[in-house]
Amino acid sequence: MNRQADTVLITGSSGFIGHRLMRELARDYRVVGLDLKETEVPEGARFVPIDLTSEEGVGKALRDVRGHEGPRIASVIHLAAYFDLSGEDDPKYDEVTVEGTRRLLHGLRDLDVEQFVFSSTMLVHKAGSPGTTITENRPLDPKLPYRASKIRTEQMIREERGDLKAVFLRPGGVYSNRCENAFLAHQIARIFEGRLKGHMYPGDLRTGQSFLHLEDLAEAVKRVIDRRDGLPPETAILLGEPAAIGYGDLQGRIGELIRGTPWQTWQIPKVMAKTGAWAEDEVLGGEPFTKPWMADIADDHYAIGISRARELLGWEPKHRLSDALPRMIENLKSDPDGWYRANKIDPARLERGRGPSDRVLDSC
């Protein structure tokens, strides 16, 4: 197969995942990145601005693609979506994620597209409990706006794809050697700073989730494209590391790597965690990342099965979070300011220091 002659479109190409995919796929394909704003475009790729909230914006971008790359598109990797931390519904979930995808699908009808790959999430599935494994057959659960928007979009694609092959990728929590996973990064930062709240968790300490290294995700996407002729017309594929490290064990490992001693974590009532998150955000003006709704999902367990990925793609992850943590923490220790910036955490937190209650528990 002459893959260099195949064109691949990537929406959300300026994001954490999209930018890396552009770089990886440009080695083998003619890659066009689509996003609102341009970032560094790797050699062998091209950028075209697109506004998914506008039919005119989508049409203009796809006409540009047709004019430069021609009508034949091997695969569209659709990463662009809306997300915020409020835990509340927002019109942008429909405007960007659901209807933006619909506009894109409709616009692609004027091109000869072989495959449409939608980036969903393992979180569309109903959570499990420690000791259980989630597969693609597990029921879906739209209990939070972000998850609900992904479920609605998957259903819309099924209804409107026509003869276009569709793949629904449902990855675990994506990370890199610098972390770059918001939830994990804040967990590490709280322990690094010795914060009191870093010792507390409002859920079963055995619960955890499957993670996925960015390099393993990129390899899976490449295989989805390469094997597009042999894939079913419509399929969902879970991607992640099969082992889900329990929150308590993960805390302990992070603490040991940072401080050289085990890190104690206590389970606290959800109402206490919600009240504390609300007070810190609304009254004290503290860490804006932690939200009350996070306590509601603290017992959710996502250990995923990847038998379908093995069968259809011949894929399994080469990385493990447990193996990546030492390098991740070493990067933090060697350049705390740079690590915080890379993970979109305010480096001023390092300068403000800790309060008295945090220092009391620093040796716990």
Rank of each mutant, 00 (worst) to 15 (best):
V224W: 03
I225R: 04
D226W: 07
D226L: 12
D226T: 14
D226E: 15
R227G: 01
R228M: 03
D229E: 13
G230R: 09
G230I: 04
G230F: 00
G230K: 00
G230L: 00
G230T: 04
L231Y: 05
L231S: 04
L231C: 10
P232Q: 11
P233S: 03
E234H: 01
E234K: 05
E234V: 02
E234T: 05
E234G: 01
T235L: 02
I237V: 14
I237G: 05
I237D: 04
I237W: 03
L238R: 07
L238V: 04
L238P: 10
L239D: 05
E241A: 04
P242T: 01
A243C: 00
A243D: 05
A244G: 07
G246I: 07
Y247D: 00
Y247F: 12
Y247N: 01
G248N: 11
D249G: 02
D249A: 15
D249H: 07
D249Y: 01
L250P: 02
G252M: 05
G252I: 08
G252Q: 03
R253S: 02
I254K: 11
G255Q: 10
E256L: 09
E256V: 01
E256S: 13
E256K: 13
L257W: 10
L257D: 08
L257A: 11
I258H: 09
R259Y: 11
G260H: 06
G260L: 05
G260C: 07
T261N: 07
P262A: 11
P262E: 08
P262L: 10
W263C: 12
W263L: 06
W263A: 12
W263I: 09
Q264P: 00
T265S: 12
W266L: 13
Q267Y: 08
I268W: 08
P269M: 11
P269A: 04
P269H: 09
K270I: 13
K270M: 14
K270R: 15
V271W: 13
M272P: 09
M272L: 15
A273Y: 10
A273T: 12
K274A: 00
K274R: 14
K274Q: 13
K274I: 04
K274W: 07
K274Y: 03
T275I: 10
T275A: 14
G276V: 13
A277V: 08
W278G: 10
W278K: 13
W278H: 14
A279Y: 09
A279I: 14
A279D: 05
E280W: 12
D281V: 03
E282S: 05
V283S: 03
V283C: 02
L284T: 02
L284A: 13
G285F: 06
G285Y: 08
G285M: 09
G286S: 03
G286V: 01
G286I: 01
E287K: 07
F289S: 05
T290R: 02
K291I: 12
K291H: 07
K291A: 02
K291C: 03
K291L: 11
P292R: 10
P292C: 06
